[in-house]
Amino acid sequence: MFEVTLITDEYEEGKKIRTRTAVRSILSYQGKLVMVETNCGDYKFPGGGVEPGETELEALRREIQEETGYIDVEIKELAGTAFEQNIDPDEPDTFFQMKSIYYNCKLLSEKRAPGVLDDYEEKLGFHPCFITAEECYQRNHALVEKGFASPKEIPWLERETNVLHKIRKNF
């Protein structure tokens, strides 16, 4: 099991904290990962926030379907976690802390239902793709090196690149 910790900004006493728990899928299919590609040229693991009243696994199934359309998915075991902390770009007096919980999953078939993207996901051109873990890591890493891994640029880029670095040898 892996752990990733990304502290962009150290917590300052007296500041507000906004927390979020998210679930993400390390979804494999025929030796490749199923990733969400954006029009920025980066890749992210399908997943997102756990809503009130939802279990982690319910949220994960919902997020996979919303972002990829795939519905024939087997959720396997917990793979690892990532913790992020930074000053909220929209609220400078608030720290944002997110725990992402990653699960190993397997796509059983290419059966799909319509995806349901949020406005920002649609604007970023979210679409599923099949890619090797190494190629995905190399593409994301190149964007990190160019300076795109910030809460204002591509907020998930550093986290996903670090996770890909940890898991790429297993695929």
Results as ranks from 00 to 15, higher is better:
N86W: 14
C40H: 14
F148H: 14
E74P: 09
K169P: 04
E145G: 03
D119L: 12
F126D: 03
Q97I: 15
W156R: 08
E63V: 09
K32R: 13
Y29E: 00
L6W: 13
T68N: 01
K76V: 06
E77G: 09
L60M: 10
L157K: 02
S100D: 07
C129Y: 01
F148S: 07
V23R: 06
Y137N: 02
K111L: 12
A142E: 13
E158N: 08
S150P: 04
E91V: 09
Y11C: 04
V23I: 01
G53M: 05
E74S: 15
R168K: 15
F126S: 01
E110K: 08
P128W: 01
V73Y: 00
P52I: 04
E74D: 15
A82H: 06
L157A: 07
Y43F: 02
P89A: 10
P128A: 03
P52S: 02
F95R: 00
Y120S: 07
E134P: 06
E66C: 07
K123E: 15
S109C: 08
I7S: 00
H141R: 15
T21V: 15
K169C: 11
P92I: 03
E56L: 06
K166I: 04
H141C: 11
L6H: 10
E77H: 12
E12L: 12
T21C: 13
I64V: 05
G80L: 08
Y70D: 01
F171S: 09
T8I: 15
T68H: 03
R139D: 08
F83N: 12
V36A: 04
Y120A: 03
K99Y: 10
D72K: 04
T5K: 15
I167F: 06
E10R: 14
F45R: 02
V23G: 03
G147Q: 08
E145A: 10
E122V: 11
E91P: 05
F2H: 06
E13G: 11
V4M: 07
N162M: 12
E37V: 09
T132L: 08
L78A: 07
Y102I: 01
K76R: 15
V50M: 03
E153K: 12
I26Y: 00
C136L: 02
E121A: 10
F2A: 06
T21I: 14
Y29M: 00
R61T: 04
L124A: 11
I87R: 09
P114R: 13
Y102W: 04
L33C: 02
V36E: 00
A149T: 01
G69F: 11
T94D: 02
N162F: 03
R24I: 05
M98L: 11
T8W: 15
D119V: 11
C40K: 14
P128L: 00
K76I: 07
F83V: 13
V144S: 01
T161V: 05
L33V: 00
E12A: 10
T8P: 01
V4I: 15
I75S: 06
D42G: 02
E66N: 10
G147V: 02
G53Y: 05
A22C: 15
Y43T: 03
E12F: 05
V144H: 02
